[in-house]
């Protein structure tokens, strides 16, 4: 019974064995369910990927969501976790081949959703950090923090498509996105230079601060770690300092 009902929801025939007050209205009544599933999943996807929707337009996004929901339906009722494969799906979806940056924008949006729901962690006491030996101290970063190396200028594209986004000159080439949830529960997206990106990567793998700074200076001659570190501290993103 449910297999036939499910097939009907996915666009198949109205399943046998259903009744309506008037037999000729059965299709219209069953369509309520078909529509509920398609529309509610489309809205769930749009909640997670608002910039993708803005970039492709509402009508196209609704159709896109139907195809995606058929290809990769949510496997759990926790819809905030749905869409991990959306970027990969977009990369292989011929109708959007002319927008090659879409998958990278989708990666940013999915990571923002994960950051929004990530575990809480209290910021480290700045005094503990000041007293630490840079050669030995390992900084723990907030559970919401994620870094993405992107082939396209997707951070700039994402920023321009925010409600208050400015029409600045569009970056070209690859960008590195840093996503974190700040103390006010906002989830900003920062664009990192090569040195900052190397610094974050090294810290995420557990390198002591001095070693991470050395790797950053290798990636970007003359790189100074302090500006990014203070920015992270201000955002509450440094949650531990362990010798």
């Amino acid at each position: 019974m449910m297999a036939a009902f499910h097939a009907g929801l996915r666009g198949g025939a109205v399943p046998p064995g259903l009744m309506a007050r008037h037999e000729d209205e059965l299709g219209r009544r069953f369509a309520i369910y078909r529509n509920n599933v398609a529309v509610s999943l489309g809205e769930a996807l749009a909640t997670r990927f608002p910039v993708i929707r803005r970039l492709v337009g509402e009508a196209f996004f609704a159709a896109l969501a139907r195809v995606y929901a058929e290809a990769e339906p949510p496997c759990s009722p926790v819809l905030a976790e749905w869409g991990e494969g959306f970027a990969g799906f977009l990369a292989g979806f011929p109708p959007v081949a002319e927008l090659p940056y879409l998958p990278d924008v989708a990666r940013i949006e999915y990571a923002r959703g994960q950051a929004f729901h990530a575990a809480d962690a209290a910021p480290v006491d700045p005094r503990a950090l000041a007293a630490a030996d840079p050669a030995r101290v390992r900084l723990r970063l907030h559970p919401s923090l994620r870094m993405l190396r992107l082939a396209h200028p997707a951070v700039s594209i994402w920023a321009r498509n925010q409600p208050d986004g400015a029409d600045g000159p569009l970056a070209t080439g690859p960008e590195v996105a840093l996503i974190l949830r700040d103390a006010g529960y906002d989830v900003p997206v920062w664009s990192l230079g090569a040195g900052d990106a190397a610094l974050i990567e090294a810290m995420l793998t557990g390198a002591p601060l001095a070693e991470a700074a050395a790797m950053a200076a290798t990636a970007e001659i003359g790189h100074a770690p302090t500006p990014l570190l203070s920015r992270l501290m201000q955002s509450g993103a440094v949650t531990g300092a362990e010798a």
Partner: peptide, 22 residues
């Protein structure tokens, strides 16, 4: 109601609607 259905090819799909049963 039911809201998830397992298919052989796709595993369990969550349908995000409260569906009726006999």
């Amino acid at each position: 109601a039911w809201s998830s259905h397992g298919t052989e090819t796709m595993g369990t799909a969550y349908l995000n609607d409260l569906l009726p049963l006999p």
